[in-house]
Structure formats: structure tokens, C-alpha cells
Design a protein around this nucleic acid. Sequence first.
DNA 1: GGGCTGGTACTCGGATAAGTTGTGTCCGAGTGCTTCTGG
DNA 2: CCAGAAGCACTCGGACACAACTTATCCGAGTACCAGCCC
Lengths: 157, 157
Amino acid sequence: MKMTGGVEWGLHCCVVLSSATEPVAAAKLAELHDVSATYLAKQLQLLSRAGLVRSTPGQLGGYLLTRPATEITVLDVVEAIDGPQPAFRCTEVRQRGPMAVPPERCDTPCPIAAVMDTADRAWRESLRVVTIGALAATVTATTPGELLDRARVWLSA
Amino acid sequence: MKMTGGVEWGLHCCVVLSSATEPVAAAKLAELHDVSATYLAKQLQLLSRAGLVRSTPGQLGGYLLTRPATEITVLDVVEAIDGPQPAFRCTEVRQRGPMAVPPERCDTPCPIAAVMDTADRAWRESLRVVTIGALAATVTATTPGELLDRARVWLSA
DNA sequence: GGGCTGGTACTCGGATAAGTTGTGTCCGAGTGCTTCTGG
DNA sequence: CCAGAAGCACTCGGACACAACTTATCCGAGTACCAGCCC
């Protein structure tokens, strides 16, 4: 099981955007993180479709968060980029083969799928209680102020 | 994000094996679930390598659980087939690009990776508290007894 | 000098190719049962 | 009738193709700024 690598980029971008007042171009975000500019653009498009960021075209265009960072959860970003579908998909194995359980007898969900669903909900809940704002606060608290300032001036340059 | 489909097969097989006293051949398990026999054999090999099942060769050979079903967790099966690695891999983006944080300053883990790790632990914990025995008990409780008997005789036939 | 218009350079957006991982398949090595033969 | 040994059928195990998805890239459409021109 492996999550799309773009999730990490998207989260970092959202953290950066949380402290931005003017639109930031995708190319700038890519250079800042030293990743493929075109591929990161794709991830930003996904965030845009999900309504998490707003893109402004034109010469001074770029991306900006649509909501305060404290109202965007990590789960929002993960689901926007990686998709909302759970990792486990029940194929109703019990309804196949010579000993198949008839569908009308399957009123209760498959226990295996139920366990997986519970775990998936726990996972998502863990991601839902953390906001981009909280992440940004942690970054601010643990990173030397000098570095933060340098990054800020570099972004607006 | 998508989990290997073989996980579902492996779990179903373990549930079936939990109520087996004699070795069950891989081909029989495949026919019972109506899945690719050769591919399911691959998953069973993974379970065998992980030490969850024991294979006995020869004419009356097959697979059997090595431990009581109540001592095998769902997580054991998932990690045996899908791998123990977490879905999210931190690539230390903060240490790249023009604003890279120097490694000696990275004494605290990346907050993003920390959140993902917490969620991953919650997910695994949910799978750890459920055993194959519990799953089998649920199946026994929710499936009509007649079907269970038919399946049992079909297996030993 | 002010307003308007055309040009331009920049932006995002979707459609288009390689690499990697999951999916599915095949054949060979090994083991235990069965059967045949000899005593 | 019993013991031994060869044959055989079945099993698992690892090595080999195919497909789907992630990753990465390119080019086109659209927009806002800027310069030049007309009033």
C-alpha cells in the first residue's frame, strides 16, 4: 500500500500558502521545494478542483487558499489529491464460488470489510483533527525565525 | 491509495483455515472463492514466509494455520501480504530547495510526517485488536448454519 | 494629460508519453501415497 | 501373507510476462498588466 507522493507536496504547499497574502505561482512553489514544476501543477489543479485553493490567472497570478488555514484539515488535502476512496475495497468474495452466499442472505456487511472500514475511519479521523493552520504553527515554532524570514522574502521576490 | 487486492483473499483464506483440521490445498481455497489459483498461491506463500501458515507438501498436503486463530490478528495478515511499510513516506522536502533547512537543524521530525505517522498507528491499532478468530466467530454467527455445514463437507471432500 | 486599445508575457488547464508496482501465469523441485514385485 | 522399492500424482516454491497506476512532461487557452496611440 502506497499513497501518492503528491500528497506530501500538496501539504507543504498548503502550509506555505497559509502565510501568503498574494498569489504564489506554481513554478515558485516547485522551485522552493525542488520538485517537478509540471507535476506539482497537476497536484495544485486537484486542490483547485476540490475547492481548497483558488487560482488567479494573469501575470501576477498564482494560488491562494480559499479558506483560513485553520479551517482546512489534513484530510481535506489528502482526499483531494489521493482520492476519497478507502484503501480496501470489498469485492464480496462470499457471494462467489460454489459455496456462494445468496445476496438476499447478505443483510449484514462482510465482517472483513467492516473491520477494514473501522480502521479506515480511525485513520481519516486522525487526519481530520489536524488543520493546516496547526501544522503551520508547529513549523513556525520549531524553525529558527531567521530561516522563516528569509523564506518569506524569497517568496515575495 | 489502494491496498493490494490479495489482502482480502488472504483474510478469507485464514478465516476458512481457522476451522480446518486437515491441510487445505491452495487450489481448493481458490475454487471456493472463485479467484485465480496461481495468484492466490502467491499470497499464501507470503503468509507462509511470515510464519502465519504452514505448508505441507505431498499428496494430501496443503495449508494450515500455525497458531490458534485467536492469536492471529488482522494486522498480521495485512502486513504479511501488503508489506509493513506505512503508506506515507516522508522525503524530507524541507531539506531541499533554495530555502532548505540544514540537517543539523532538523532535530524535530517533520510535522507533516508526524501527523501521518499518528494516523498510520491508529489504523494499525484498529487492525491489531481484531483477530482471525473473532472474524470467524462473526461469520459463524451471521451465516445460516446450513450453509456452514455445506461448506465444511465441501472442503473436506 | 487622460482614456482607450492592441500587444505581450505570464498564468493555469487538460491532454499526452515513460517508469514502477501490482496482477496474473507458468514451469520446475520436492514429498508422500500407492502399487507392484520378490521373498 | 508381508516387506521393500520403484513409480506416480499431487503439492508447494520461485522465476517469468502483462496491465494498471503513478510519475513526469508538453502544449494550448485565457487573463491581467503594460505600452503606445488617439482624443
